[in-house]
Design a protein around this nucleic acid. Structure first.
Length: 592
RNA sequence: CGGGGUGUAGCGCAGCUUGGUAGCGCGCCACGUUCGGGACGUGGAGGCCGGGAGUUCAAAUCUCCCCACCCCGACCA
């Protein structure tokens, strides 16, 4: 039994000045955690209790799914990460350090290499596979900017699993098993979430999904449909392709002087102001223009390559989407020096006329999927102060291909059902993806196959942020006055408040009930303090957020003694006869 | 890494413009009163004013440098 009279906790009346988001504010105020380092937190007794409950829930669901728990050091030697290239590729986010002899070590940000090596060490035959292993381990990442309390830290606990299969079909099964176990887990946590398609990016996998818990303080932007259940990470959204427009009868493209119109805005204003250019039924808009811009792609092998992108002028290029598409290459905007190498590029007036592998610059030219055959555009005429109106795709120019790089805007068309999409924020609580054979090949993992020949396993990787989930749960369930834990995660089943003055019958009744509850297997937090006023005890109970609050107060002194039982979430309270209150509480708090 | 803000008692803050004995609320200690919604009285303890250098008779206050934290952006399995 936890007694408030000696529990190592101090609740705060005021919000800590350095906490912004609700979970951070309340976890500190209620005495669960304290900041100990930039991006690092210490856990007080209540916090550690809650942490263990979350961790055990994760463990339980993994075990249920048949995955086996192992454990690795967090402090690892450089070599395996050197072999896979991640010692350098991981960049500034990797904590690197040296031992007394000057040998390089790292604090692991994730453990693909070690799992792969463990399987290499143990598994020799196809009979040893498939297998799914996981660990719950502290991870380290030298985040540029830790923020939002436990939501983004430099030291955090992650459950990471890895599956090893010999066939792609087997990987699909392992992936599906993990996906289902995550669904079970997050349902059990009571955490709202969406599953969005994600890009596996440079990891080279074929399939990837993120579990996002929708909340305003989340850092991930995703797209969801206002009508159907489509949801996708912004990088993974596909643009519906319109039908081609017949070319017959479309007006000729006309080159027009448009002095002083280097931007889309100035261009639209200019052509709207010229009566001879007016459209018969409406004003020109930015969506009628075709904006062309050039970037430099930097490939991992050090080579660079220019790439031209054409998108409707009412949109910007979304660098995240672009980089997801061109990964593992990185994209950077064209510099003045780059422009100098291509004199035919008229900055601000670049048009399809000089772009493409068949044209003057020879720069590969990819366009937005909306730019289909028969669509006509106002676009640069490749000379300063000149644009061309009615330049028609498939007739006047032919791009080298399409690219998904334009930003997504609210109201865009859902690729699944055709309704409008909206943009939402969420926090990533889980990520599953198919890794393939990258790590197995790099670290020379193979087993003897059924046919006697060596076979390279294919891997899946599956992560859950344990400490982040705790924060997300606090975020999602708390209210203005405090935390409000789901029953299974709560540090106790019942918060028993002793009211009434010391020396009254309340002390005896509360002690008795507390002992009986404990005997019935309930976890009790008993506020037996006499030094603080009842108001403080009630406020603390609400702040600490145990889902059921029982009060031994004035009702205890009645002819037919009662205790009050209150639901923290709804605020509903009822008076229960003292001799029934234990049964009542056992019933209310029964785990479902 | 860029922009903005903030560093003063355990926590939340004032004082800084205009240099001159470091303050308030909460919390903490002691005693008494109170006891169902963050009670009250009386008396206490607690500070290298983020760090360093400078200006000055004198610096929390003015100048310069550094550090830390928060927010926005960049970055981010």
């Amino acid at each position: 039994m936890l007694r408030m009279s000696n529990l190592f906790v101090k609740t705060l009346r005021d919000d800590p000045a350095d906490a912004e988001v609700a979970s951070h504010r309340l976890l500190v105020r209620a005495g669960y955690i304290r900041r100990a380092a930039p991006g690092g937190f210490s856990w007080l007794p209540l916090g550690w209790e809650v942490y263990r409950n979350v961790e055990n829930m994760v463990r339980d669901e993994m075990n249920k799914a048949g995955f086996q728990e192992v454990h690795f050091p967090a402090l690892l030697p450089r070599e395996p990460y050197e072999t896979t290239g991640r010692w350098t590729e991981y960049g500034d986010n990797l904590f690197r350090l040296q031992d007394r002899k000057g040998a390089d070590f790292l604090l692991a940000p994730t453990h693909e290499e070690m799992f792969t090596l463990m399987v290499k060490d143990i598994a020799a035959s196809y009979k040893d596979l498939p297998v799914s292993l996981y660990q719950i381990q502290t991870k380290y990442r030298d985040e540029a900017r830790p923020r939002a309390g436990l939501l983004r830290t430099r030291e955090f606990v992650m459950k990471d699993s890895y599956s090893f299969d010999l066939t792609d079909a087997g990987l699909d099964e392992s992936y599906a098993a993990h996906r289902q176990s995550y669904i079970d887990l997050f349902d059990r946590m009571g955490l709202p979430y969406v599953i969005v398609s994600a890009m596996s990016g440079a990891m080279g996998g074929s399939k990837s999904e993120e579990f996002l818990s929708p909340m305003d303080v989340g850092e991930d932007t995703y797209i969801r449909c206002t009508n159907c259940d489509y949801a996708a990470n912004v990088e993974a959204v596909t643009t519906p392709v319109p039908d081609d427009v017949p070319l017959d009868g479309l007006p000729e493209a006309i080159v027009h002087d448009t002095p002083g119109t280097p931007t889309i805005e100035t261009l639209v204003d200019f052509i709207n102001a010229d009566a001879s250019l007016r459209l018969p039924d409406r004003d020109w808009s930015a969506a009628d223009t075709l904006k062309n811009l050039v970037v430099t792609l930097k490939h991992p092998d050090g080579t660079v390559e220019p790439l031209a992108i054409g998108i409707p002028g009412d949109r910007d290029v979304d660098m995240k989407r672009l980089e997801a598409v061109v990964a593992p290459a990185e994209a950077e905007p064209f510099t003045e020096a780059d422009f100098a190498k291509y004199p035919s590029l008229a900055k601000g007036y670049i048009g399809p006329g000089v772009l493409g592998e068949q044209n003057a610059t020879g720069i590969r030219y990819l366009v937005d999927p909306r730019i289909v055959t028969g669509t006509a555009w106002v676009t640069g005429a490749d000379a300063h102060g000149r644009h061309v109106i009615g330049l028609t795709a498939g007739r006047d120019f032919t791009p080298d291909g399409v690219i998904e790089a334009a930003e997504i805007l609210p109201g865009d068309t859902c690729p699944a059902c055709g309704s409008d999409v909206e943009i939402a924020r969420g926090i990533e609580i889980g990520h599953i993806f198919q890794l393939g054979r990258k790590y197995a090949e790099a670290l020379d993992l193979w087993v003897q196959g059924e046919d006697g020949k060596p076979a390279t396993p294919t891997m899946g990787s599956y992560g859950v942020g344990v400490t982040r989930c705790l924060a997300a749960i606090a975020e999602a369930t708390s209210d203005d006055i405090g935390l409000c834990w789901p029953r299974e995660i709560s540090p106790a089943d019942v918060h028993l408040v002793m009211a009434g003055k010391e020396g009254g019958p309340q002390r005896e009744a509360a002690e008795k009930i507390a002992a009986e509850l404990e005997a019935r297997g309930l976890r009790v937090l008993f506020d037996d303090r006499v030094k603080v006023s009842p108001g403080v005890r009630f406020k603390d109970a609400e702040l600490i957020g145990i889902p059921t609050i029982a009060v031994a107060g004035r009702g205890v002194a009645d002819d037919e003694p009662t205790m009050e039982v209150k639901d923290r979430r709804t605020g509903d309270r009822e008076d229960v006869p003292l001799d029934q209150v234990v049964d009542h509480l056992v019933a209310v708090t029964k785990r479902v």
